[in-house]
């Protein structure tokens, strides 16, 4: 139901992103999706990649502020309104989305998000029998 995501603390300054990406490249880790949330002073760079545990260790050992967290990753059919219908399920239950982004994997739409109540979110996903992607699908392709 959840997959691992790397969250990297980045300063709004030239060269910070390229350093992270270069390290992942050298370690032969594939980037699958990424997004930057920025405040005025700093950003949080969130990455979905192959071998997140190994990638986490590599970045940490290089002195980069990185956290490994679990996020929900649902698979959505390629049809109009799927995201709206899915989010409505959580909204009805009073669950708030902290952040969300999406990407395509093997031609399928993937919705990645984090909520303010992890347990409750799991129950909603099980009850509605929503499709989610297992982490093994994120290995290199």
């Amino acid at each position: 139901m959840t997959i691992h995501q790397l969250s990297i603390f980045v300063e709004n300054k030239q060269g910070t992103l390229i350093k992270v990406l270069q390290l992942l490249k050298e370690a032969n880790v594939q980037l699958i999706a990424s997004t930057i949330a920025d405040t005025v002073e700093y950003g949080i760079y969130r990455i979905i990649c192959s071998e997140p545990d190994r990638a986490y260790e590599i970045l940490r050992d290089q002195g980069i502020s990185v956290a490994l967290s679990e996020v929900f990753a649902l698979e959505l059919d390629d049809k109009v309104g799927r995201a709206a219908d899915t989010l409505a399920l959580f909204s009805k239950e009073g669950i708030n989305i902290a952040y969300m982004y999406s990407f395509l994997l093997h031609g399928k739409g993937i919705l990645v998000f984090r909520t303010d109540n992890e347990q409750h979110t799991r129950e909603v996903i099980e009850k509605a029998d929503l499709k989610f992607i297992p982490e093994k699908d994120l290995s290199k392709y």
Binding site: S7, F9, T39, R46, R60, S65
Partner: peptide, 8 residues
């Protein structure tokens, strides 16, 4: 580093 989290 150990206090950095995914949560802004």
């Amino acid at each position: 580093p150990q206090f950095f989290t995914d949560d802004v």
